[in-house]
Design a protein around this nucleic acid. Structure first.
Length: 570
RNA sequence: GCAGCUGUGGUAUAGUCUGGUUAUUACUUGGGCCUUCCAAGCCUACAACCCGGGUUCGAAUCCCGGCAGCUGCACCA
């Protein structure tokens, strides 16, 4: 693990470049060079393979600009902010709550801005650097704000996470999945957060790529059909208990994690397992991973349970690269309220249930004449009472003989106006709001950790530094070189390069320097397979094919190359 | 956002304190020679003073502002 050396080579060979460099750069952004972009695509493609093909989920792609309403409902407009104030004389900007806390020694985090303004006035709090007056407090929102349309009166934001794009499609998705739980939708794409001071390279970006899956579940049934297959897998878990009581990391099977209640559901455990499998196949080993449960105070207010997957780095310490949360029904409930849409799903019972209850209806013979023109609205009120309210009404009328109803007028409802009936009703199912389990991957951070942990150094006369990428994600799959640049070997190498490109491989052709140097260059960027054209090639149409990891060579007929390479890349 | 330190070819650096020649050296990269399988050697070429302003006859060097990086503080729903 060596951030500095790794980062140097990553820059030199075209993985990660600073953004807007010729204009001195802007922090919080990064450019992926040719190999970086390719590596990132390969990682995302692998993610798709695992979560779409592997789990039967489906991918959607929503807009990155969202109207204010969506983010109002999700809570981002109101809560994704810091209160700020500014000195009117020197222009310095401060976190308002921090200045106040410092001045009066009280925690004011939960107060409204206007309340904090009051405190500033009452306590005569001034600018800490020059003593000037402070402006009224405003909220600095971490979202990038923009305008939709020419009139500029429709406020939009760059999405701060991809998840909301899935929640707002719930009705459509639910129908797409034939209204059957569980189902999962995924989205890969950019998200934006205008961080106040991002300083950790690709670890904390203002524009970053997420891959998220939203798995919609029956709240009563969070079992997972494939759980049995992974029940014996060992998991390394740092639970709340482990963290708070300084215990050893748990090393238990998935089944034990479930039985002991360490993780709350089969589906959540299964997702932890999947995350680990994914990272392992990218070349990030168990030793540098930690599965850490959020502490009670750390957990977002909506989360029922939340686990972070963290990866060890030498430069930044433990870095959160994946979050796996049980968000309950928080998001769907919020969007349902704000949009007035029914975001629930009808669950049919295995067997219809017989429910006995009391219903109430107006005794129309007496009801109509008693209330005349007012009867329709009173009737509507009575019919919309909940089961419990009907019981309460019945009780009151039976004991007191009447019920006073306050609508736009006061009405006196007598016992004779109503008919109560005890009935048995057959209920075939009910509408429920699904719970959501969300694995959320930070692709840029995962790419960084992949680079870091694929990076190897060896002392071999000189220092050898190279990326040993998992074959599946190597940005260049094959390098082809002539042994020497003469007697037409170069032309044969170019010919093979073209043929392999047509066969669908990413192929590099390298003719400069010596053969040893070319191998070294290929190794540096983790090319798994190198092919050398030599003088025998001209005689018998064979080439040597060399495996990066074993350095073993074998001779292969040119026409067999495609199959041999395919087999080696498996 | 605050404080401190830093900023020279692709990389690593000399020069900055004490202003003055064509900005040092190595590696890398491109072209060539040589070379029969893992960074050999030789020739050659490309390539830099973070940006802007100021002081000065003259600024990589001194001063101011900005940007970026590192460290600490703060922030990270």
């Amino acid at each position: 693990m060596n951030h500095e050396k790794m980062f140097n080579i990553a820059r030199k060979r075209g993985f990660l470049w600073p953004s807007f460099e010729i204009y001195s750069g802007v922090s919080g952004f990064t450019d992926y060079g040719p190999l970086g972009a390719s590596l990132k695509n390969n990682i995302m493609q692998k993610w798709r393979k695992q979560y779409i093909a592997g789990e039967g989920f489906h991918e959607i792609e929503g807009p990155t600009v969202m109207p204010k309403e969506v983010l109002k409902a999700s809570g981002h407009v109101d809560n994704f902010t810091d209160p700020m104030t500014k000195c009117l004389s020197c222009g310095e900007v401060f976190r308002a709550d921090h200045i106040i806390e410092e001045a009066i020694g009280e925690d004011v985090e939960s107060l409204e801005n206007s309340e904090m303004d009051e405190i500033v006035k009452e306590n005569n709090i001034k600018c800490p650097s020059c003593g000037g007056d402070l402006a009224n407090i405003w909220n600095y929102n971490l979202m990038f704000k923009t305008e939709i349309g020419a009139k500029g009166d429709k406020v939009g934001y760059m999405r701060p996470e991809t998840a909301q794009g899935i929640f707002i499609l719930f009705k459509r998705l639910s129908r797409f999945f034939k209204n059957k739980l569980p189902f999962g939708a995924v989205q890969l794409g950019k998200a934006y957060r205008n961080e106040i001071s991002p300083r950790q390279g690709v670890i904390r970006l203002r524009e970053f790529t997420q891959a998220e899956a939203e798995i919609f579940l029956d709240p009563e049934d969070k079992t997972h059909p494939k759980f049995k297959q992974i029940a014996d897998e060992i998991l390394y878990l740092s639970s709340q208990d482990v963290q708070m009581n300084d215990k050893e990391t748990l090393e238990i099977t998935a089944q034990e994690a479930l039985d002991q209640g360490v993780v709350s559901s089969e589906t959540l455990i299964y997702q932890l397992y999947l995350a680990r499998k994914f990272l392992k196949e990218l070349g990030i080993p168990d030793e540098v991973l930690r599965f850490r449960q959020h502490l009670p105070g750390e957990m977002a207010h909506y989360a029922l349970d939340c686990w972070d997957v963290e990866c060890l780095t030498d430069q930044y310490g433990w870095v959160e690269i994946i979050g796996i949360a049980d968000r309950g029904n928080y998001d769907l409930t919020a969007h349902s309220q704000f949009s007035n849409e029914e975001l629930s799903i009808y669950m049919e019972y295995d067997e219809p249930k017989l429910v006995s209850k009391t219903i109430v209806k107006p005794n129309l013979k007496l009801f109509g004449p008693a209330f005349k023109g007012d009867s329709p609205k009173i009737k509507t009120y009575i019919e919309n009472l909940s089961d419990d309210e009907v019981l309460a009404l019945k009780e009151q009328i039976e004991s007191e003989g009447k019920f006073i109803l306050e609508l736009d007028n006061t009405f006196e409802i007598l016992k004779d106006h109503l008919i109560f009936e005890d009935v048995e009703e057959e209920v075939k199912g009910e509408r429920i709001i699904p719970h959501v389990i969300e694995p959320s991957f930070g692709i840029d951070r995962i790419l960084y950790c992949t680079l870091l942990h694929s990076f190897k150094t060896e002392e071999d006369g000189f220092e050898k530094e190279y990326f040993k990428f998992a074959k599946e994600i190597a940005p260049i799959q094959v390098s082809v070189f002539p042994l020497m640049n003469k007697e037409g070997l170069g032309e044969i190498a170019i010919d093979i390069t073209h043929k392999l490109r047509e066969a669908g491989f990413t192929v590099d052709n390298d003719t400069s320097g010596t053969i040893g140097k070319r191998y070294a260059r290929a190794d540096e960027v983790g090319v798994p397979i190198a092919i050398t054209v030599d003088f025998d090639t001209k005689e018998d149409n064979t080439v040597t094919i060399r495996d990066r990891d074993t350095e073993e060579q074998e001779r292969v007929q040119i026409e067999d190359l495609k199959e041999v390479i395919e087999a080696k890349l498996q």
